[in-house]
Simulated scan of single mutants.
Amino acid sequence: MPKEFGRSARVSSQMQKELALILQRDIDDSRLGFITINEVVLSKDLASAKIYFTVLNSDEQGKKSHVKRLNEMSPLIRHLLAKKMQLRHISELKFFYDDSFDTGMRVAELLSNANKAATPEKDENDTL
Score class of each variant (00 low, 15 high):
18 E>H: 02
101 F>I: 11
71 N>F: 00
70 L>S: 03
123 D>R: 14
119 T>Q: 11
64 K>H: 10
122 K>D: 10
68 K>S: 15
30 S>V: 13
31 R>P: 02
101 F>Y: 10
15 M>Y: 01
40 V>W: 00
10 R>W: 02
102 D>P: 03
48 S>G: 08
122 K>R: 12
123 D>W: 08
11 V>G: 01
62 G>S: 11
126 D>S: 12
9 A>R: 11
61 Q>A: 15
29 D>I: 00
18 E>N: 06
55 V>I: 13
44 K>D: 09
32 L>P: 02
12 S>I: 03
66 H>G: 06
84 K>Q: 14
41 V>Y: 09
84 K>C: 03
61 Q>N: 12
26 D>M: 02
13 S>T: 12
78 R>S: 11
71 N>C: 03
117 A>N: 10
124 E>D: 12
83 K>Q: 14
120 P>L: 12
114 A>Q: 07
33 G>P: 03
116 K>A: 13
37 I>E: 02
113 N>V: 05
37 I>G: 03
54 T>F: 00
100 S>Q: 10
92 E>V: 10
72 E>R: 15
7 R>K: 10
63 K>L: 04
88 R>W: 03
87 L>C: 04
19 L>I: 02
53 F>N: 01
24 Q>R: 14
30 S>A: 12
91 S>W: 00
65 S>L: 14
29 D>P: 01
79 H>Q: 12
107 V>Q: 07
40 V>T: 03
103 T>A: 11
72 E>V: 12
65 S>T: 15
73 M>P: 00
60 E>N: 13
67 V>I: 15
36 T>L: 01
114 A>D: 09
2 P>Q: 08
86 Q>I: 11
48 S>I: 10
111 L>P: 07
65 S>Q: 15
32 L>V: 04
2 P>H: 04
63 K>V: 14
38 N>V: 06
114 A>Y: 02
69 R>I: 06
80 L>A: 03
35 I>R: 00
43 S>K: 06
44 K>H: 11
25 R>A: 08
53 F>D: 01
92 E>A: 14
97 Y>E: 03
32 L>I: 05
50 K>M: 07
52 Y>M: 06
95 F>M: 04
65 S>P: 06
124 E>N: 11
13 S>K: 11
28 D>Q: 14
74 S>H: 05
27 I>L: 01
95 F>K: 02
127 T>K: 15
20 A>T: 09
95 F>C: 05
48 S>P: 06
122 K>S: 11
42 L>M: 12
50 K>T: 10
82 A>F: 01
28 D>S: 12
15 M>I: 08
27 I>Y: 00
30 S>D: 10
8 S>C: 10
121 E>K: 15
73 M>Q: 09
16 Q>C: 07
87 L>K: 01
34 F>K: 06
41 V>W: 07
41 V>K: 15
110 L>S: 13
20 A>P: 01
107 V>I: 15
119 T>C: 08
